[in-house]
Design a protein around this nucleic acid. Structure first.
Lengths: 168, 168
DNA sequence: GTCTATAGTTTGATAGAC
DNA sequence: GTCTATCAAACTATAGAC
């Protein structure tokens, strides 16, 4: 609260005039940030084109979102790790449901015989894990700076999913 | 430190006789736990069989490890999220290098034309993300209890990777 | 709506007896 | 090697003046 108060230019005690407690402030801020980002992803998914072209669009946008905003990515992963049930329910129902449904719909177009919920999770995880592991990958065999290049990551994921899903 | 002291049955001050500070205690404990788990995965990867059989073996074992030990999975993700450079370097060089090299070698057998470092990351991430998102997936469309079944997750990931990598 | 001052906890760590 | 006692710092939150 003290760090935040410095960042916004008022004293810590004054924050309690605008928010009842720390939890409420965090929750409001989180919802604001996530809703903002989710909109960008949903738009990328509602475009036209073949399923494979839309897959390419989604992967590219999602890679850019995660790569260009490390703080947002860390916040997302912290919520998945530490969020209690009530907070995750709120986050799911108010923010994630839109983009997730769009990804699942794309998944069903790409592979009608596959569980769309599971495939949607796989598609997102495939992108996210490359960024989640970025700080440790430099110390692992074969790690190169190019593996942090957004275009290289997007191409790798797109090709892998394309081959897995028939590339039609 | 106080919680831990209760768990082990001595007073908090006594912990400082065995470890110089909280960081050292945490680091020692972490290294012990990770080394223990990494051995199991490496063994599953050094078996015989066709590349696809070894892929099936790896995915099954990795899914079981993450599914049966949620605390270990959370610890792994917390390190990736919060670990400073020195700690991640130590973790990578002393613990992860073994299993990672084995996964990368399998990746090269499965797809010689693909970057083995990137494919290894994708293989691990595909498994991990299904567990990382477990607490929020119940609130997302299409989420069912069976998606937390270890066999269902293993089969989904194996099929997806099998199709992507030619299944030979 | 912001401030100063401070209450009430909790934390990591130390001193020194036994 | 474990204990009691305690320190110094940091934290969330409140009280009350302006």
């Amino acid at each position: 609260m003290r760090d935040l108060s410095k960042a916004v230019g008022i004293r810590a005690a004054s924050l309690y005039h605008h928010f009842p407690d720390k939890q409420s402030l965090y929750l409001d801020a989180m919802e604001y940030v996530f809703a903002d980002k989710a909109e960008g992803i949903t738009m990328a998914l509602n475009g036209n084109g073949t399923p494979f072209e839309r897959l390419e669009q989604f992967v590219t946008r999602f890679v850019e979102l995660m790569g260009n905003d490390p703080n947002f990515r860390a916040l997302l992963q912290r919520e998945l790790l530490d969020g209690d049930e009530a907070r995750l329910k709120l986050l799911a129902e108010r923010v994630f449901i839109g983009p997730f449904q769009a990804i699942a719909a794309l998944a069903e177009d790409l592979a009608p015989d596959c569980d769309p919920h599971m495939l949607a999770i796989s598609m997102a995880g495939l992108v996210l894990f490359h960024f989640e592991t970025a700080p440790i990958r430099r110390f692992l065999p074969g790690g190169q700076p190019k593996h942090n290049d957004l275009k290289v990551v997007a191409q790798h994921v797109t090709r892998l999913l394309g081959k897995a899903l028939g590339e039609n």
